[in-house]
Simulated assay, not measured.
Amino acid sequence: YILDQAGLYEVEIREVAGNLTDNYNPTNKVLSLSQSVYNSSSIAAVGVAAHEVGHALQDASNYAPMRMRSALVPIVSLGSNLSMPLILLGLVLGMNQTLIRIGIWCFALVLLFQVVTLPVEFNASHRALRMLNNGAPQEMPMARKVLFAAALTYVAAVLTSMLQLFRLLLIFGGHNNDNN
């Protein structure tokens, strides 16, 4: 209904397996909802679905942080897969600082992606709350709680990655000898 109201008729809605697998893919204009969300009319499920619709609305309005996040995906995917193996390889090769530094930079890219993700997620939740307020204002307090809790998971991920990066810098940042 919300997609139709926004004129986004080309967005396909699919049910996907798993929990917490809800997402919107701007490349193929598919909004995927986990089974527990797709098959429920609870305010939590409606809030999650509206949040994902918020991403479709961001895509339709060419929301700059979403475009930036999408552009970072291939780079960050590579960086997240290489960071720890490079650091471990650097250790195995006798504290090879070049490999360790590259690994740390790859990990920093993951943190950058998570930081860029924050405004995208908060904005999608804000859009969802606006949409829900128009259609079901009596459900707003609970929807706000659900979406706030979901947003905190992204904040926790950023803080965890920041601490992990700080830890890597503390462990490996003090070595000035380069064994290349």
Rank of each mutant, 00 (worst) to 15 (best):
N133H: 07
S41R: 13
V120W: 01
G90T: 04
I102G: 12
M84P: 00
L88T: 07
E52R: 10
S36L: 03
L88D: 04
R127I: 15
A45K: 00
H51T: 08
L112K: 01
N134C: 15
N62A: 11
Q97C: 00
L109Y: 00
M84F: 11
G94P: 08
P119L: 07
V53W: 13
I102D: 14
S70I: 05
W105L: 11
N123P: 12
R67G: 10
L93E: 13
S36A: 06
M84N: 01
N134V: 15
Y63Q: 03
S77E: 06
L72G: 05
S70R: 07
I43V: 12
T117P: 10
L93D: 13
Y63K: 12
L88H: 09
L132E: 02
L78V: 13
P74V: 01
F107D: 02
R130P: 05
H51P: 08
I87T: 03
Q97H: 06
V116G: 06
N39W: 04
P119W: 05
L118M: 03
Y38L: 01
A56Y: 11
A108W: 00
N39V: 05
N133A: 13
M95C: 10
L111A: 09
I43G: 01
N123A: 12
T98F: 15
A128L: 10
P137I: 07
S83V: 00
A49F: 02
P65M: 14
I102Y: 15
S42F: 09
G79V: 09
N62I: 04
L72W: 10
P85T: 00
